[in-house]
């Protein structure tokens, strides 16, 4: 399966995608492992399906997603950690 993972912050509004991995991100420095842990605790786990439902005022930041029936607001840098495989529209 041709599998190019798209980071969450690059998904368009309305897109549905399956999480393939939570990557590390230099933005969070030494806290990165904690941020990954918290994302997982909130349900952002490989295999989970999410949908992009909206964006903040300036350039897709923050982004709002629905996962497991719950909505969350995430910043670009947090969203960039979440690698997804987009569902065909």
């Amino acid at each position: 399966m041709p599998h190019t993972a798209t980071p969450l912050h690059q998904l368009p509004k309305g897109a549905r995608a399956t999480i393939v991995d939570i990557a590390s991100h230099s933005h969070f420095g030494e806290l990165d492992a904690q941020v990954t842990q918290r994302l997982k605790e909130l349900g952002f786990l490989p295999g989970a399906v999410l949908q992009v439902i909206g964006f903040g005022l300036f350039g897709a930041d923050p982004v709002a997603v629905r996962i497991n029936g719950t909505k969350f607001g995430l910043r670009r840098s947090e969203a960039a950690k979440i690698l997804t495989s987009v569902h065909p529209a």
């Binding site: 420095g29 909505k71 995430l74």
Partner: peptide
Amino acid sequence: VSQGFPLLLELP
């Protein structure tokens, strides 16, 4: 800003 803190806001 050297280090970010996440927003991770639940929208109930």
